[in-house]
């Protein structure tokens, strides 16, 4: 199996600009007898959008779970800015600046939009109210939530005090994406963020991905939607049967060729 890297030379540790922001080498993850990942490599470079495509069960979600601390790989290593990292839990990856929207949306349905945006990193009130009584700054968080949503151009969420369970599937998706976009300082990972969305909302999410990239935050996005992928991605990681089949670009390959690699009809 050959691996093409058409845009960038593979990063070498030590080099500053060419060192991938996030890199995985030989990741293996098994669930009992099921092999989720079978030795996967991945590089995410500065300022790029890396799409991951692959059939159902190819290991896309498992791959990003390993990258973001939701699963611990059996073997292989993960490098952040060239340095090995060992995420034990999602919190570790978040602390390192990696924000993720998982395929099974990680939102708390009974909490409102603002509380979900700040879940796990609540802001306390200033002064002794916050430091001694540990009161959270609810009004402040709501205000910042509104502001973030406005800046991210998410217009579908007008009221940040609505419990998330009262929202539509697309709006919930928007909450999850907004949270990742608002807090992802180093890398943002999106697992099928447009799956539940209409045309307009999908367009908004793709726009958001571009905004993030332009802010200098590289994005990994998993999608089954080839036009979306070819529209937004700088490079495309093709996942097949738990391995990386190829890394291509929208320029080097057509959609048909990409699908052929994905399904095994063609070699990369």
């Amino acid at each position: 199996m050959t691996t093409i890297d058409a845009t960038t030379a593979p990063g070498r540790p030590g080099g500053t600009d060419t060192t991938p922001v996030l890199q995985a080498r030989g990741l293996v993850k098994t669930y009992g007898r099921v092999v989720g990942l079978d030795g996967v490599d991945l590089e995410l470079h500065r300022g790029e959008v890396l799409a991951i495509i692959g059939d159902n069960g190819a290991g896309k979600s498992t791959l990003i779970k390993c990258l973001t601390g939701a699963e611990i790989p059996d073997q292989g290593e993960i490098l952040l800015d060239g340095k090995p990292v060992h995420f034990k839990r999602p919190q570790d990856a978040r602390t390192a600046g990696i924000e993720t929207v998982y395929q099974t949306l990680a939102v708390a349905p009974s909490l409102d939009v603002a509380a979900n945006l700040f879940l796990g990193r609540e802001v306390r009130r200033k002064g002794p109210l916050g430091s001694v009584l540990r009161i959270t700054d609810r009004a402040g968080m709501r205000e910042r939530a509104r502001q973030e949503l406005r800046e991210l151009g998410i217009s579908t969420l007008q009221d940040v005090t609505v419990p998330v369970e009262n929202l539509s599937g697309g709006q919930r998706q928007a909450v999850a994406v907004a949270r990742a976009a608002a807090f992802g300082s180093k890398v943002v990972v999106l697992d099928e963020p447009t799956a539940a969305l209409g045309v307009r909302e999908s367009g908004q999410v793709l726009e958001l991905v571009r905004t993030l990239r332009d802010r200098g935050v590289p994005v990994i996005i998993i999608s089954h939607n080839m036009p979306h992928v070819f529209d937004i991605a700088d490079r495309i990681h093709v996942q097949r049967l738990g391995r990386r089949a190829a890394t291509i670009t929208p320029k080097s390959h057509t959609m048909t060729e990409a699908v052929a690699i994905m399904t095994g009809a063609a070699e990369a």
């Binding site: 939701a70 999602p90 978040r94 993720t100 099974t104 990680a106 009974s110 909490l111 879940l119 959270t136």
Partner: peptide, 17 residues
């Protein structure tokens, strides 16, 4: 907030850090 989140959806709470 975390008490509610954990009771609501434990996996989501975990993935939320």
């Amino acid at each position: 907030t975390h008490v509610y989140a954990v009771g609501d959806d434990r996996d989501a709470a975990r993935l939320s850090g």
